[in-house]
Amino acid sequence: MVEPAVALFGEAYEKAARVLEELLRESGARYTLLLDRKGFVLVHKEALWAPKPPALDSLATLIAGNAAATQALARMLGEPRFNELLHQGSTHGLYVEEVGELALLVIVFDSSAPVGRVKLYGKRAAQALEGITQEAVVSPGTLGIDSEYREGASALLDELFGN
């Protein structure tokens, strides 16, 4: 892993999950996700009333790609960054806020949630999440990945891709 990885589990995971739950409640949004910049989902929450979300892996990848392209555009125009990303259709909206250097907060909402409210609580949540993700930055070596892990994974590779 070339970049520092954010590994959210245990208490950090619980904390981040609580921030997302509160964000859903306060903003009235449907879904919210915390992603790393590579497009991996770290935590996600869905409102109880919301319909089943689309494939989160795909959503996360497209948003991370989109955010990376947007930042590249900003730099080309001489801006250090564009602060937020907002897409709005007739019924659905998507709001993305940076969470420090390493993560992205995504909020999917519909017309029942005013965009102003989504942005307000989104920015607040992003701030709370920044500290949590910073504390969760680890080098993979400290995760307890060892040669036993490697052998186990290797066996699974054989199972999936054949010998």
Partner: peptide, 18 residues
């Protein structure tokens, strides 16, 4: 193009390749 592949669980770690 993007394709997520699940390797399964190893030593309590869910392992995925993107």
């Amino acid at each position: 193009d993007f394709l997520p592949v699940d390797l399964g669980e190893v030593k309590g770690f869910k392992t995925r390749f993107h």
